[in-house]
Design a binder for these strands. Sequence first.
DNA 1: CCATAATTACGTGTTATCACGTATTTTTTT
DNA 2: AAAAAAATACGTGATAACACGTAATTATGG
Lengths: 218, 218
Amino acid sequence: MSAINVVLVDDHQLIRMGITALLNSEKDIKVIGEVTSAKEVMKKIDEELPNVVLMDISLDDGDGILLTKEICKKHKAVKVIMLSMHVKEDFIQRSLKAGASGYILKDSPKEELIKAIKEVASGGKYFADEVSQLMLASYVTKAGDIAGKRKKSSGLTNREIEIIRLLSDGLNNLKIADELDISHRTVDTHRTNIMQKVKVKNVAELVKYAIKNKLIEI
Amino acid sequence: MSAINVVLVDDHQLIRMGITALLNSEKDIKVIGEVTSAKEVMKKIDEELPNVVLMDISLDDGDGILLTKEICKKHKAVKVIMLSMHVKEDFIQRSLKAGASGYILKDSPKEELIKAIKEVASGGKYFADEVSQLMLASYVTKAGDIAGKRKKSSGLTNREIEIIRLLSDGLNNLKIADELDISHRTVDTHRTNIMQKVKVKNVAELVKYAIKNKLIEI
DNA sequence: CCATAATTACGTGTTATCACGTATTTTTTT
DNA sequence: AAAAAAATACGTGATAACACGTAATTATGG
């Protein structure tokens, strides 16, 4: 069989080198491209059309999850595995929703990474043990519905939280509208409602609110 | 000249592989040992007596800073460079106090790591640009003198940092102008320069930058 | 004392934000 | 099925942000 072609997206040089070194020792896997910033991702994917993308979830200049969504929408055959530092329920959910086929941790043993790539390349899914465990626990309690909990504590709706995240990532109304496939006027409405609800009066304060309440990571 | 002997302390497999791969391409530097957990560190250092220790600041089963303190006390000739994921002021301060000779980030370019090792091995000190910048910003307000030592790090001016803080607090140009007793057009100029310097394109990203670099607290 | 950096300030124009609204459709809950 | 909540969308208008500039004063370091 031919080797699995992998494109690596991570802004951490050491991580990139580590993964490349690790994967190069596998003869069935070939790293055909490395991307260091969000804005170069789509171009690279379009060019290389890899079998698997290893996607860092937190890029300096963007959001790995949004990129994943884009990739999955555009190229159905390209499978994405998220690479994350921590086990965060929220991130896992959003990643899956975006279309990721796997979720592993940066301190996973090398065997796990290789297994994940092979599994995903052949159409399957793979999640790190810690992640599977969390998903199971979450499923058992209430079918993974953390939204309900947050609703009570903050009064924000899911959509509003989604928009806070995008706003905090520096997207303007038009780009958010584009992302969510709604009118920019709707985004404006959400924004107004959000500002009122969390009692802030501009984006700067909203970003701080989002960080404080762990809606986003920095 | 003989090679610089390095011992690597990090519990992340990918990071260890990355660094080793990177350093192996340098003929003046030799990785003579890798340690994955805190409790093995001292034994390894005692045995190998390396020139430089690359120390992950956050180990699963211990504290890289405490280990650094121990190493520096016991072996004056062994220099320690901290490896950190983020720019955290208190980590930097504690590391310096513990006796570290350098502080670099895991997403530093490879040249920086090599430069740091060589500099430190020859008795000097080395800090990543982002770290120097923070030290500058932080100590300039206090009585510190470190500002003068590494000032050429392409950083922000005092006024610009002041304005970032006010922007991040949610003040608009007019209020900042009022606060600082200058024209709002001047604030606009500062804002433009800041955005260009830190390479962000709106307030949301600027706030995150400020938090990341500890210019403000949340 | 001279060069450079820092701080100050303004002109002009485009685009985005924010603050009021109103209002329909869809989803969820009771 | 009815009520409530959430998500959708638009009108209008004032204000602010952002992107180009240019350019004159301070400080400050060599």
